[in-house]
Design a protein around this nucleic acid. Structure first.
Lengths: 343, 343
DNA sequence: ATGAAAGCGCTAACAG
DNA sequence: CTGTTAGCGCTTTCAT
């Protein structure tokens, strides 16, 4: 039989309030009363009804994490970090998969899980500033992952994408490469989070600053950031006749796809073509060759996002001005740019 | 202002019952009444309080998925499949990360999220039959992922691990390999889900059946199924002086780690050593060389697990006898066994 | 087809 | 330090 707070109270010969106090760890309970109540709890295996608690208290202890695709290594690794950071705050994570579809992102931000979740951490793909401004689920605290090109309507945490892209490109330049291609631009990337737009800009700036030209012929668009697209983009680059001596991929999975194409084409990495990505996913540490990359501090991103959410839940902090946090990143050169010497 | 059912009822000039009927899509509502109520709902942006609904109805519409590690590609891909299958049933997925720790697995199975979740799908690592038999959260429907060596206390869905391991090994034998090593055994793998135990058994059976000997010297233990361990195991194998001409890794990430070590050692795959894994994770389709593998039908596993859970929730089906479902798998030979011809 | 009212199990104000 | 009690917002008999 499923025990209720009341049943425990009866058995222990106390009131529900006292049991509630024990369950919630309040201080002002006489030691022997507490012991007696605890004994009944242990013995009956009582578990509080979380729905009831949530209805009453207005808090569920659950936060949602909305990501485009759970099986992309970067998001999988980020999920892990968020789950861990949330656990430290006593939160459970509920995962929403949006597939990057605007419709689904809007739904999630509107509060599709209303009153079931205390807050939302989302990595938006198609969600625009307008969607955020006019959302009606206005009381659901949100933290966005990734830079926002548009207004500062919400809290967000991100790395400096332009800076990261510059670092990657400068690393290739420091190795004497001059024809540096870019894989990963996206047709409409100036909307939403605009990662592709920012990374392309960082690439262009680095080249220009170094006295090179950012040749549009060396930029290849992709539909997604998956390996398949990276492989296809690299094939396109090779077929175009303008063979680069280095490639900056906008993320690691694109880079891993590019490595695959280069291997098939019989080109040596990095001797013929050097390759670098962004994300530092685990795959890149064991690929052949190992992948040079820019490593964002995922733990810091996760921790910061969770903390921002926690702060929004402090009663009067609800309508404090939106904050923007920057997480760190670091260049991790490996074999795909340095060669076997990298080991 | 946050609308309640009651507020909507007032504005529409009907009772709460009627609004509830509209919200829940019941049939017996006069068309014009329905239209009027719906208009108020749209206009006010009313969203039902899910905690209240859950408290009252005993259903939350949320199921939990408990996995050891979210950033292992196989689990990440499986998560995606489960989320999709759950969505079809109108369920949201709440993810628990257990790190394979018995303590955490027990906690989750005991009903740590009690009344917040309608059911649990779990891929256990250390959870034993005893834990399951004596769990007190006896009314939380559970479906286990992976074979159970021990009793049939719960529903579970799995591939035939012995068969899958046999197929992998036989594929290597069909290529004329005779010194076939096995990477991935685990010291205490005869407890819990025992994947390692079963896969080792499949490997041994295939060899014996084929007239070869299952040499214990060719079996390497690992602590986890990560790339790092696969790389280390392969190094150990090479250092031992008994160089194999093929390696069956108990999963793909171990195999990817092994490939890395072989590349570092200057050995050619598959010419010197052929390699095969199990899981068919995306990484293996783009690695250099591409990875031969046994592909379990992840979509089927996910769909079946979700369906089993759904069936448990039908009122009187709650204590039907536990069921065991088998998902299919298929051999996917790629370059790591067939060479460049595989393309 | 719609309304009135009870109550799901918990928390927190208020009393004592 | 402990007890009593009023809801949180919804679903669901039971009436009408």
């Amino acid at each position: 039989m499923r025990m209720r707070l009341r049943d425990v109270a009866e058995r222990a010969g106390v009131s529900v309030k006292t049991v509630s106090n024990v369950v919630n760890g309040y201080l002002h309970v006489a030691p022997d009363t507490r012991a007696r109540v605890q004994a009944v709890i242990d013995e009956t295996g009582y578990l509080p009804n979380l729905s009831a608690r949530s209805l009453r208290s207005g808090r569920s202890g659950v936060i949602a994490l909305a990501l485009p695709e759970l099986d992309m290594p970067y998001f999988a690794e980020l999920t892990r970090s968020v789950v861990e950071a949330a656990q430290e705050q006593g939160w459970t994570v509920l995962v929403d998969q949006t597939d990057g579809l605007r419709e689904r992102e809007v739904l999630v931000a509107e509060g599709i899980r209303h009153n079931l979740i205390d807050g939302l951490i989302m990595s938006p793909v198609s969600l625009g500033a307008g969607d955020l401004a006019e959302r009606s689920g206005g009381d659901l605290p949100i933290v966005l992952l990734g830079e926002r090109l548009d207004a500062q309507h919400v809290d967000h945490v991100a790395i400096d994408n332009i800076g990261a892209a510059r670092s990657a490109t400068q690393h290739l330049m420091s190795l004497g490469r001059t024809r540096i291609a870019a894989i990963g631009d996206q047709p409409h990337s100036a909307v939403g989070s605009g990662v592709a737009y920012l990374r392309r800009r960082g690439w262009a700036e680095a080249l220009t600053d170094g006295g090179l030209v950012a040749d549009p012929a060396l930029v290849v668009d992709v539909a997604t950031f998956r390996r398949q697209e990276g492989a296809a983009a690299m094939r396109q680059l090779l077929a175009s006749g303008t063979q680069p001596d280095a490639v900056f991929c906008f993320n690691d999975t694109l880079a891993l796809g590019a490595l695959r194409t280069l291997a098939e084409a019989g080109l040596r990495v990095p001797d013929d073509v050097a390759v670098i990505g962004i994300d530092d996913v685990e795959d890149g540490r064991y690929s052949v060759p190992t992948l040079s990359t820019i490593a964002p501090d995922k733990a810091q991103i996760a921790r910061t996002a969770v903390q921002m959410l926690a702060q929004r839940l402090v009663p009067r902090a609800a309508d404090a001005p939106p904050r923007e946090a920057r997480a760190g990143y670091v260049l991790v050169p490996r074999e795909s740019t340095l060669g076997r010497a990298a080991g």
